[in-house]
Design a protein around this nucleic acid. Structure first.
Length: 120
DNA sequence: GTTTTGACAGTAT
DNA sequence: AATACTGCCAAAA
């Protein structure tokens, strides 16, 4: 409500809300932000935000927990390394075990009682 | 104000 | 199974 695109703010918030060792997908974030099909806007925002805020885009993977970049891409390797550093096991294909690292939306509402769901 | 792009996802063929 | 097309959103030119 108010300024432009709450969506972006939500997305940003969500990204920053991703705990270490966990990973979220564009679809998840988009859905949490209120746009089940706004994956594009999410990825887009991520890029924009990262440049300005340096968000943990590394924790944001593509669909199915797979990195969107090419396997031989430089960003891909960087991401993979970062994720591994976080404790996330990334396959050579750039796939992450969502069954273990899939991030659960804790509470996009900041300052509100965030129920500790997740619990792996 | 309109057009193009940008780190996607989902469904259909 | 892999590939193509479509749908969606937001920001920059």
């Amino acid at each position: 409500m108010k300024t432009p695109t709450d969506f972006s703010q939500k997305v940003l918030k969500l990204i920053q809300s991703i705990p270490k060792g966990k990973v979220a997908t564009y679809g998840q974030i988009a859905e949490f932000a209120g746009k089940p099909h706004g994956s594009r806007g999410v990825g887009w925002l991520l890029h924009s935000c990262t440049k300005s805020h340096r968000l943990p885009w590394q924790r944001v993977l593509g669909a199915k927990g797979k990195i969107s970049f090419l396997r031989d891409s430089m960003p891909f390797l960087r991401q993979k390394k970062l994720l591994q550093n976080e404790g996330v096991v990334v396959s050579e294909s750039g796939k992450v075990d969502l069954g273990k690292y899939a991030w659960k939306k804790s509470a996009p509402k900041r300052g509100k009682a965030r129920s500790l769901l997740g619990r792996e």
